[in-house]
């Protein structure tokens, strides 16, 4: 955890995420690849600015963003889905959206692993 706000008496959900009740975080898998579309991050919260700074260098999975920023994956998903909504972040197509059969995908995985032997 990077920093902690002072403890509050009551549970206040989504402090970091700006209070959205139903974040669209379910569009994200841990391995969904994300990258930044723009360099300006003005007006964003400190956490979102850190995400933008990291993601400007290239594509990373959601899990990598979480690990590099020392944030829980669930928090990272909420931040990223906000940044997708505001046009700061785009996702690359996940394997599931591609015009490739499961069999072709598995064979590509197999070939890649065999190349490591």
């Amino acid at each position: 955890m990077t920093r902690r706000r002072p403890e509050r008496a009551l549970v206040r959900p989504h402090v970091v995420t700006g209070g959205r009740a139903h974040p669209t975080r379910n569009i994200f898998d841990l391995v969904t690849l994300v990258s930044a579309t723009r360099t300006r991050a003005t007006g964003l919260s400190p956490e979102k600015r850190r995400v933008m700074e990291l993601c400007q260098g290239g594509a990373l999975s959601v899990a990598e963003v979480a690990a590099h920023l020392a944030l829980p994956a669930s928090v990272t998903k909420v931040l990223l889905s906000d940044l997708v909504d505001s046009g700061h972040i785009v996702t690359r197509a996940s394997a599931a959206d591609r015009d490739q059969t499961e069999d072709q995908l598995l064979r590509e995985v197999l070939n890649g692993l065999r190349a490591r032997l």
Binding site: M1, R4, R5, E7, R8, L10, V11, R12, P13, H14, V15, V16, T17, P23, R25, E47, A63, E64, A66, A67, H68, A70, L71, P72, A73, S74, V75, K77, V78, R116
Partner: peptide, 27 residues
């Protein structure tokens, strides 16, 4: 096997096993 230094993510879970998806408010 990893080409990157292995990374670690941590998830805060409630006792009930739910992920805590915000940074504050849960002791």
């Amino acid at each position: 096997l990893s080409e990157i230094r292995p990374l670690r993510t941590e998830e805060r879970m409630t006792q009930a096993g739910e992920a805590v998806d915000h940074l504050a408010g849960v002791p």
